[in-house]
Amino acid sequence: MTETGGGAEASGATAVSLENVRKTYQLGEPVHALDGVSLEVPRGSYTAIMGPSGSGKSTLMNLVGCLDTPTEGAVVVDGADVATLSDRERTTLRGTTVGFVFQTFNLMPRLNAVENVALPQLFQGVGRDERRERARELLERVGLGDRIDHVPNELSGGQRQRVALARALVNDPALVLADEPSGNLDTETEAEVLDLFGEFHDAGTTLVVVTHERHVAERAERIVHLLDGKIERIEELGSAGDPGEPAEPADGGREDR
């Protein structure tokens, strides 16, 4: 739980570690989206990443999520250095060790809830019956046991995000990466979904949440503040945040507005 890059000496205890990571985009002139970031995410931790637009949050997320490779430095996910992997190996790593939860839910519109949850396992070659059983079990855990054959259109925003969370968990990933998971939800639903995150964290899931919202970030054990591609500071909150006592009013918590 330290900023200093100690490498992934014990991959058993570290879900993700970033070591002096740079990501440079050539857009006419080089843009350093990430400029020397070192971070470790231990297993079972709950980390929030905050920062204004353009601070490098998305780039960091793409790197941690094995969607992208760093220009410099090493990103080690579940013991594997992402940069050294082939495209195919990276995809497999992503499919098995990272679960994504997106702001816009990103469910397959023509698949029903149970099929959406089972989708990652489909690409891992898991049998149909086994997939369905696992998906149904997860949907029950997120409280949608009675909605398993509904397509996303027939579900509310909160329900969709729960389906997305169930999908993220279906392969027992080393970490769940959530990008503004409550950005499209009303306050009440947001609280429900975040409670659910908390429950899964308590059950041992490693969570990384990227957000603008202070009160969302405060549910984590620590908040990593990004600014201009660098880690500005890491705020330790001790235990998983108490939703009842936000440090600041929710409205004032938006860092970039």
Binding site: D87, T91, G95, F123
Partner: peptide, 16 residues
């Protein structure tokens, strides 16, 4: 395109 992105994010290989 978005569906393709989702599938790839959750582990679909190019050949899939």
């Amino acid at each position: 395109t978005r569906e393709i992105g989702i599938m790839k994010a959750v582990g679909a290989q190019n050949r899939d």
